[in-house]
Write a protein that binds this DNA or RNA. Structure first.
Lengths: 191, 191
DNA sequence: CAAGTGATGGGACTTGGTCTCATCAACCGT
DNA sequence: ACGGTTGATGAGACCAAGTCCCATCACTTG
């Protein structure tokens, strides 16, 4: 096995995902992941900040897509319409290939506290990114924070639903955010 | 220094907080914290699950207070009124002593990713706890999730404000949640 | 063909975290 | 007063995560 096999990063992700599924996250050593990928521990840490991150690659791209869409939204769009644009903008990353590993990945994350921790931080990162991007548009601080938080909620639920049902993520995200908005309205509706 | 000095746990917290402030979280070894507290590494890990947890003790109590208050709220209370009761119920833990270390603690947490990660997970824990407690009351799943998320947002902002201004946490929490509700309303208001 | 570049291998090292066993103070019943 | 029990601690071995530094090798470029 030569040194220059391509796609080292993807091989590491696959090996990690499979090993985590087979024997659990804690029972899998980084050296073992690297070995299955035909690499070494050193190389693993060159590609990923830490053991957790192998399951969260590409999330920075998502935040960039969100903030980009928020900045690019029409000037007269209301906050939750801007949020919708942000969610829609992430759709390009929701490929069939991603959907294939999705459930396995979610299951692994759910099974371990360290991973749920990292996941939670990623979501907070999304919320902060969207809040800042909304503030940039002149949306009041608290309004921005509330809208961003609702957006993250819709994003998560939309993602799970998309994994279950498939189809176009744009549709799923729009529908999910719509339901969140309805829920918000029902909270403040009279008895 | 005898074995039975009291308050081992509190001494560890203090030592950790001070050392983290003095030299940073990453540059402080658990052994060093234990040493300053007149204890050993073994004892540290007997009191705290891991190095991070020394800054998050007592958060389980908060979740219990929240869920208890939600379960005990009047049957005809609307979701966000129930959430208000949950936040108010946590006020008993917001003592002067807690307020004294608060800013130092927040600063340390903000300075390190591992700690922000743990903090994020705690907040998710609150959200899940409140969501479940609301569902228990018959609140629809999504409504419960939205209300809980808004509750966590208000809780965080209220906590920060309470650290700045002091006073009764009950007042601060009520006011902050009220502002969040106004922000929600303004999001759906016509242009 | 020689020099350079970039990804990899390898191994030493620190530290978080687990585990096991010994120790010792306080308590309790007789 | 005495011996046994309990519970918190100390001590040290041990494993894995993560860092660092340097050697190595494939591929590229002049």
């Amino acid at each position: 096995m030569g040194r220059w096999e391509p796609d080292a990063r993807e091989r590491l992700v696959r090996a990690a995902l499979d090993l985590f599924s087979e024997q659990g996250y804690e029972n899998t050593a980084v050296a073992q992941i690297a070995e299955r990928a035909g690499l070494t521990k050193s190389t693993f840490f060159r590609h990923f900040r830490d053991k957790r991150e192998v399951l969260f690659g590409g999330q920075d791209v998502l935040a960039d897509l969100m903030t980009g869409a928020i900045a690019a939204a029409p000037a007269d769009a209301r906050p939750l319409e801007v949020i919708e644009a942000a969610l829609v903008a992430t759709a390009v990353t929701f490929t069939d290939e991603r959907r294939a590993h999705g459930p396995q990945r979610l299951e692994v994350i759910a099974s371990n506290d360290e991973l749920r921790e990292r996941s939670a931080l990623k979501m907070v990162g999304f919320a902060i990114a969207m809040t800042d991007a909304l503030k940039q548009r002149g949306v009041p601080e608290l309004d921005a924070a509330v809208a961003a938080e609702l957006g993250v909620l819709a994003f998560n639920r939309g993602y799970e639903r998309w994994l279950e049902t498939g189809g176009d993520f744009v549709e799923v995200a729009r529908r999910t955010l719509g339901e969140v908005r309805e829920a918000v309205a029902s909270l403040e509706a009279a008895e």
